[in-house]
Simulated scan of single mutants.
Amino acid sequence: MNIHIIGAGAIGKALAVSLKRKGCEVQLVRGNMDDGSTRYEEIILALEGERKLSENIKVSTLSAIPKMEGIVLLTNKSFGNQELAKRLWHKTQKTPIILLQNGLGVERPFIESGFDQLYRCVLFATAQTLSGNQVRYRPVSASPIGTVREKTPLLRTLVAEVDSPLFRFSEVENIEPIVWKKTMANCVFNSICPLLEVDNGIFHRNSEVFALAREVIAECIVISQAMGIDLDAKDIEEQVLAISQRSDGQFISTLQDIQNHKETEIETLNLEIHRMAQELGMETQVKNTKLLGELIKSKSKLNQ
């Protein structure tokens, strides 16, 4: 089956190599430029233990592909989804789309546009661009995929198609609680690490920084419960520590975005939690989450 990966960042490249090694027909699509070009590029994955793998991957831009058939995976930054939904409508109306993006509400533009086969994935893997097309990749656990909208039952088939020994995926019946749980972890990593300019391992190395993470988690739990999503703060704290230990030395994507003078996804993380709190009349209960989000937004703008 043909697999189109939109978003040629670190995760997109890691996925492309993993699927190519499995034997899939893979095309990596750059979402931030569109010059109509198509070429092959060698992409190198740096794994644990100094192990490296490389594959020649077909890399294109959107205008070079008149129609996308097979499966479309979105690893682009979620702030581009509104425009992307419009551009993909005539290319992928009946093609299954899986969103591998952080945050809450990232699927909204595709729902509003009327896409039939829409799925959401929560990534439990980290990747960091080292130089050019060389990416450091660290899997944490299998990334679950669930249904957002499904006209034809395809979830199990899709999971089997995108799952590979290097990049594992699993099928789940209800993805929403997992989305919230991961969003809370991202509210921690994607705000605190970039502001301190430190790697993901800081939370298992430093108790004071972890205490701040626990405050953010506690605030997010209040909002999730008000939205009918019942989660345990202790579980999320343990998840943050597990990710921190597993990705020690790795820098979060938001810090990489700021350093590369790019826009961040903080609007779908801390600031989306704050937006929901405002709608619920609970704004005062997410002060730390909001402040950290606003600081990231300001730091990003100052570096652009």
Rank of each mutant, 00 (worst) to 15 (best):
T75V: 02
P96Q: 10
K91T: 01
F79H: 14
G80M: 03
S78R: 07
G70C: 13
K77N: 06
G70F: 02
Q93S: 14
S78H: 03
W89D: 02
K94N: 07
L74A: 05
K86V: 11
L74N: 00
I71P: 09
R87T: 12
L88G: 04
P96T: 04
L84I: 09
Q93G: 03
K86A: 13
T75M: 03
I98D: 03
N76A: 15
A85N: 15
L74K: 01
F79P: 09
R87K: 14
V72Q: 07
A85M: 15
K94W: 01
G70R: 02
R87C: 10
H90G: 07
I98M: 09
T92D: 07
T92P: 08
A85F: 14
G70Y: 04
L84C: 14
R87D: 13
R87Q: 14
I71W: 02
I71V: 15
K94E: 10
K91G: 00
N76Q: 11
E69F: 01
G70T: 06
I97Y: 07
N76P: 10
L74V: 06
L99T: 01
R87P: 02
R87G: 09
N76G: 10
T75G: 02
V72I: 15
K86N: 12
K77W: 01
F79L: 13
L84W: 09
F79V: 15
Q93R: 14
N81P: 13
E83A: 15
E83H: 12
N81T: 11
P96Y: 05
E83T: 15
H90K: 12
N81L: 10
L84P: 13
S78E: 04
I71R: 07
P96M: 05
E69H: 09
S78W: 08
K77D: 03
N81S: 10
L74G: 00
K86D: 14
L99E: 03
E83R: 14
Q93A: 13
K94Q: 04
I71N: 05
S78V: 11
V72E: 07
Q93K: 14
N76I: 15
L88I: 04
I71A: 05
L84E: 12
K86E: 15
F79R: 11
L74Q: 00
K94H: 08
N81G: 12
T75I: 00
T95N: 09
L73I: 12
E83L: 10
K77Q: 08
A85L: 14
T75K: 00
E69Q: 13
K94D: 08
L74D: 01
Q93F: 10
W89C: 03
K94R: 05
